[in-house]
Computed example of a mutant assay.
Amino acid sequence: MTKLKIANLDGRPEIFHSIQGEGKNMGQPSVFIRTSLCNLHCIWCDTDYTWNWEKTRFAHVKDEDPAYKKYQMDKMIISLTLEEIYEEVAKTGCKNIVLTGGEPMMQLQELSALIEFFNSKADDYFFEIETNGTLLPDATFEALIDQYNVSPKLANSNNPKKLREKPAAYEYFSTNEKAVFKFVISSENDLTEVLNICTTYKIPNQKVYLMPEGTNPEALKNKQQWLIEVCKKHQFHYTDRLHVHIYGDKRGV
């Protein structure tokens, strides 16, 4: 029986009805399915409960907080069948599904089975996936997915370049009509890195979305004007973090 590893939100799977807060479909009512597990370990990650397990040596900005502890892996994952996931999503009546994580493409075969199961129930589901762009899809998944939201990690993530930058994957997504690229920008150094990536992998400007780094409205606003001017200069899209403005830094919204 196919099961998907889902993040545990206070004893229930992190499957929630909200709006897409970022990127191409910003403002679109969506159901988010947050998978567990990740192949990268970003020092500022706001979903560190999907990978920062006990007895690992990964660093996180919260390490400075004496109350912060790494997570017990077995307590932070709920394994659900395809039927159980479908039942949760069907309650909402929403047909735009966002597969997020962690890194959802670590469970590629399970996700393909999930999409096929949903499509057997109705033919108007739309699936978009949030991915760090390090893993290539197989032919089955490529045929099923509707949109890739590729969010490459930069040097500020504290991941070694050999882990975060996979040339074959970047080249694949740069020419894929279903893919857009979303970069989190905190400083001018980040922008220089983004421009180098776009040049190296021939990523078209119209595929690129720049988003300010921040987990509260004030931090986002501080970077907003500068980043909008950057987007105007390079013909990139600007994207905000709409959910942060509406809900704040909270899970399950």
Rank of each mutant, 00 (worst) to 15 (best):
Leu191Gly: 01
Asn222Lys: 14
Phe181Leu: 05
Phe183Ile: 09
Asn132Ile: 03
Leu220Ala: 03
Thr215Ile: 15
Thr134Lys: 06
Asn216Val: 05
Asp124Cys: 09
Phe118Cys: 00
Ser157Phe: 13
Ile129Asp: 00
Lys161Gln: 12
Ser112Cys: 13
Glu171Gly: 06
Gln109Glu: 14
Ser187Leu: 07
Val150Met: 06
Thr131Cys: 06
Ala155Trp: 10
Asn149Trp: 07
Ile115Gln: 00
Ile185Pro: 00
Pro212Cys: 08
Glu142Ala: 13
Glu171Thr: 12
Lys182His: 08
Met105Trp: 00
Phe141Leu: 15
Lys221Arg: 13
Asp190Trp: 06
Lys121Arg: 11
Phe126Cys: 02
Pro137Glu: 07
Glu193Asp: 05
Gln225Pro: 04
Met106Asn: 05
Gln224Ser: 15
Leu195Tyr: 03
Thr134Asn: 09
Gly133Lys: 11
Thr215Met: 15
Ser120Ile: 06
Phe117His: 11
Ser112Thr: 01
Phe173Lys: 01
Val184Gln: 01
Ala122Gly: 04
Ala179Leu: 08
Lys202Asn: 12
Trp226Gly: 11
Gln107Trp: 13
Pro160Val: 08
Gln224Trp: 07
Thr175Met: 14
Ala179His: 09
Phe117Val: 02
Leu114Asn: 01
Val194Glu: 05
Asn132Ala: 05
Thr175Lys: 15
Gln225Ile: 12
Leu191Arg: 08
Met105Cys: 09
Ala113Pro: 03
Val150Arg: 00
Asn205Tyr: 12
Asn196Thr: 14
Asn132Glu: 12
Asn216His: 06
Leu136Ala: 12
Ala143Cys: 08
Glu130Lys: 08
Tyr201Val: 10
Lys221Gly: 03
Lys223Met: 09
